[in-house]
Simulated assay, not measured.
Amino acid sequence: MTDVRREFLGLPSPLAPRAGAGGYPCQGVYHAPTGRRPRTAFIATHYNVDFAEHYLAPYLAERGYGFLGWNTRFRGAEAYFLLDHALAEIAVGVGWLREQAGVEQVVLLGNSGGGSLMAAYQSQAVAPNVTASSTKAADAIADLPAADFYIALAAHPGRPEVLTAWMDPSVSDETDPLSLDPALDPFDPANGPPFSVEFQRRYRAAQRARNQHITDWVHAELERLATTRATDRLFQTYRTWADLRMIDPEIEPSERPPRHCYRGDPQAANYGVTGIATQSTLRTWLSMWSLQTSQCRAAPHLARISVPSLVVHARGDAGVHEDDARGILDGLAADDKTLELLAGDHYFTQPAGARSQLADLLGGWLGRRGA
């Protein structure tokens, strides 16, 4: 098997200073086959998860590709995320691949939540559309270098969509993590599982209403702060592990384990302190999580992606479903687009050999396209 070299990168951002302690805003690790300069390289970035040592990097480097696991300054700092700033910092990584690593073709790997983020990047690169938070940010994202391929891997349809699908609508008081509307409690056996079609309908409507209720409060709070010394604030969003599909495996059945989410038992996770959107600034909520205002929804961006595209779905994924993958495929503007369904969980930790099989799939797909 080909030896793999690793190179740590720390690079400046057009929108943030270098930290006083010395760290650069943009950081990552470049994997490549030893002694060779790849013609084609992947770049993978997430909204807040550290992708520097992405699990696929060594597998694809062994197969002759470069792989830049790339982090914006929002790694581990989801509460402060701004889409326009993140896109400008992804461009730093894409630019490094072309200008310093010398690759000829760049593959955007949109893994998990990164699916919609990388879709937004390519969308902005080919047809600028993202509303910027400042004039400086607008300049930074006005001319992004476009990629040559797009891959959605175990990808969610967008940040506001996944949050809304997972949030617990039985929360009756956003300031109280234990508040409860019993008629919507997904963990009360009186409501299910199995969950009736009528309960599912009410539940999904209440989830959308909760998202909108928070958005309305955020707008009102920003208006209130306009008369104060503050321009933003932090707030909590409680109980975001309550997708009915996590509890009832008969809803959109798949190979996922029953009563399971990415953090184990969904009831324990739902009443715990770790989850998506647990803390946000007002502006981050509008940029990332709001169904009404967020530009982190994949669909509008997919409609601007015309490069060859691949969608890969893990059949045992506990949080991404086959309908999500098919929706991403249908939304892509590319004439050359393919959907592949593989055995595996969200990060292909199982079954044995799943990651190697996945790397072979990606390499074969690119190879048939001359990359």
Results as ranks from 00 to 15, higher is better:
R233A: 11
W285R: 13
D345T: 06
D324E: 04
D324T: 01
Q295N: 02
G344S: 05
Q267L: 04
L332C: 05
R297H: 12
L342Y: 00
D323H: 13
I247G: 10
D243K: 13
L341T: 04
P308Q: 15
A242C: 09
L291D: 11
T349W: 07
A343C: 01
R239M: 08
P258G: 05
L310S: 02
Y271G: 09
G327W: 00
V307I: 09
H301M: 08
V273M: 14
C261H: 12
A242V: 06
L282D: 01
G331S: 07
G272I: 02
Q267Y: 08
D265H: 11
R304T: 07
G316Y: 00
I276H: 03
L302F: 14
I305L: 09
T349V: 03
G319Y: 04
I276N: 05
G275M: 04
D248L: 10
P308D: 14
L282A: 08
A303H: 05
A325T: 00
L244F: 06
L244Q: 09
F348K: 02
D330S: 03
H260T: 03
G327L: 03
A268P: 00
T338I: 08
Y271K: 02
D243P: 09
E340C: 09
M288F: 15
G331I: 07
E252M: 11
V273I: 14
P258V: 13
Y271D: 14
G275F: 09
E252F: 13
A333K: 13
I247L: 15
D345Q: 10
L329T: 10
L234V: 11
T281M: 12
L302R: 12
L286T: 06
Q292C: 01
S309W: 02
T281P: 12
A334Q: 10
Q295V: 00
L332F: 07
A298K: 01
L329W: 03
W285Q: 12
V311R: 03
D232W: 10
Y262Q: 12
G319L: 12
V312Y: 04
T281N: 11
G319W: 02
P258N: 13
I328Q: 00
A299T: 02
M246V: 03
S294P: 04
G275H: 05
D330M: 00
M288A: 15
T349Y: 08
R326P: 02
